[in-house]
Design a protein around this nucleic acid. Structure first.
Length: 506
RNA sequence: GGGCCGUUAGCUCAGGUGGUAGAGCAACUGGCUUUUAACCAGUGGGUCGCAGGUUCGAGUCCUGCACGGCUCACCA
């Protein structure tokens, strides 16, 4: 099986061109090229010299630029050959700069080389800067080096690579052809950098806890299973670092965070990738209300720095991050949504009866906890566009959270929703080992009844609580989803460089 | 997993009701020494996702399969 399609005329032609290039005496794949600048450095530094100008003015600008000698390298993105001279655009990934090659300004061998170049090839140029008649900053080339061959043809130069499947499977090609795709990942890196410095600056310690563990607990999710040969035991890819991080708080790391991957063996969708990046942080002597303040500060800071404004547009809907953010209890949000609903009369009537009573902290709804959560997911979640904290989660769906002092059916927990996406989950950590053990057992009973997604019993964690966990609040923030919102991407696969897909069939 | 939609040249896309497969970019040949979605003239390039079926005849109609997109369910 040949590596590339040997019958494709364009690939055959590119091989021939490479052959001819080596016959001219150029190395096919040379080892290095010393640059004086990157393309981006030149473009940024001299961008203001470009633009249309009267002839005399242009000459003056060029007199200055002609003195600037540069050696640059990049991928050929466009090419316009006109007899005995030609233009190419070189890209360093981030920026493009035009190069002008004229036959009588380069050695004959290099002019021969120029004519054998294909779109996508990597070359080096040496020359001086100038502005063309049409006002574009360019390099006037006096030396041309061949650096690497693109044997495969490039995507269409104007429309780029559109096919969604190819863009995900061949991300390298997507990045070459679609600058907007590159932008997303540059912003993603900026988001992660901002998050790290936020916690570093506030004295949190960054830690790494096991990705492989004999027990996959800390979240209600199905894990990936693998096997350790030497120990001859099954291990699971973690579904959350939560229980390890709280062990560290027991151990005296009063403020910890971890920013890394979680793995969940569940369905794929526009909002779910089997591995996803999660920030989790814990701080002793705090409660979940303090975390709401902190979360506002963190996310508004990240949005402002990375996006440049607290207002943005996501899927055509405008979102405003200006604090303070709304805080609504789950039951209140559900009842309000039900009253807005026309097509569910029975639910509406029940909601009507309860809506006033829901203001009472002791209030117990006639809706079961499971029902409330289902109604919330269905009616409320998609409507939460501006950042909104939802509080008042049922204890039943929060096996690691501390109960409210006044209403044991409710826990001190919030989730943050933005653009209909669940972006954060935080709570006061349950630190009573006896109650924690009871909750784990409840979860295991559910598993016994066939529910696969439960928070599994971790006895060592209960033992750790036995040594005393200070009152602690903790939070998880989905970095992929935050990135989706900040970069305006509707699909999680567009913020993950190599999203999981079915293997290509041959 | 269910429903709907898609898969045509290297890329981006056209191809009413079935009748020999098209364009632009890219490639090739020639021309052009400041062009820029360069331009002008010419040329080649297709198992129409795969496998069956209906038909004199299938890119087009039917069935199955593969891959993808949207969506519902589960989940963050």
């Amino acid at each position: 099986m040949p590596l590339f399609d040997e019958e494709n005329d364009q690939i055959i032609q590119r091989r021939k061109n490479l052959q001819a290039i080596t016959e001219l005496g150029f190395e096919a794949y040379p080892h290095k090229f010393d640059r004086t600048h990157t393309v981006s450095e030149i473009v940024h530094h001299y961008a203001d010299r470009g633009g249309q100008r009267p002839a005399e003015e242009l000459e003056k600008v060029n007199q200055e630029l002609n003195g600037i000698k540069v050696r640059l390298a990049g991928r050929i993105m466009t090419s316009r050959l006109m007899g005995k001279a030609g233009f190419i655009h070189l890209s360093d990934g981030a920026s493009r700069l035009q190069a002008y090659v004229r036959s009588n300004d380069v050695p004959v061998r290099e002019w021969q080389l120029f004519k054998l170049l294909d779109l996508g090839d990597i070359v080096g140029v040496e020359g001086w800067l100038f502005i063309t008649r049409t006002g574009e900053l360019s390099v006037h080339v006096r030396g041309l080096s061949f650096l690497a061959k693109a044997l495969l043809p490039m995507p269409e130069k104007y429309h780029g690579l559109q096919d969604v499947e190819s863009r995900h499977r061949q991300r390298y090609l997507d990045l070459i052809a679609n600058p907007s795709s590159r932008e997303v990942f540059v912003k993603r890196a900026a988001i992660i950098r901002e998050v790290r410095s936020f916690f570093d600056d506030r004295g949190y310690i960054e830690v790494e806890t096991p990705m492989l563990s004999p027990i996959a607990s800390g979240a209600a999710a199905r894990p990936f299973k693998t096997h350790h040969n030497a120990l001859d035991i099954d291990l699971f890819a973690r579904v959350a670092p939560e229980l390890y991080l709280k062990r560290l708080v027991v151990g005296g790391f009063e403020k910890v965070y971890e920013l890394n991957r979680n793995f969940r063996n569940e369905g794929l969708s526009a909002r779910h990738n089997p591995e996803f990046t999660m920030l989790e942080f814990y701080q002793a002597y705090s409660d979940y209300e303090q975390l709401m303040e902190l979360t506002e500060e963190l996310i508004t800071g990240v949005v402002e720095r990375v996006h440049g404004s607290l207002k943005l547009s996501y899927a055509g809907v405008s979102v405003d991050f200006t604090p303070p953010w709304k805080r609504v209890t789950m039951i209140k949000a559900v009842l309000d949504a039900l009253l807005d609903q026309d097509d569910s009369k029975d639910l509406k009537e029940r909601a009507l009866v309860e809506v006033l009573a829901a203001e009472d902290p002791q209030f117990v709804s006639s809706f079961s906890p499971k029902e409330i959560v289902d109604l919330f997911d269905h009616f409320v979640e998609p409507r939460l566009i501006d950042p909104t904290f939802i509080t008042g989660f049922p204890t039943e769906v929060s096996p690691l959270s501390k109960q409210s002092e006044t209403n044991p059916g409710i826990v001190h927990r919030f989730e943050l929703f933005i653009c209909g996406l669940e972006c954060a989950n935080a709570f006061c950590e349950l630190n009573d080992p006896a109650e924690q053990e009871r909750r784990f057992k409840e979860q295991m009973d559910q598993r016994g009844r066939g529910v696969e997604e439960v928070v599994v019993m971790d006895e060592d964690y209960v033992r750790a609580l036995g040594y005393g966990l200070p009152p602690t609040a903790g939070e998880g923030i989905g970095i992929d989803r935050l990135t989706m919102i900040i970069t305006g991407q509707a699909n999680i696969r567009d913020v993950i460089l190599f999203p999981h897909m079915r293997p290509e069939s041959k």
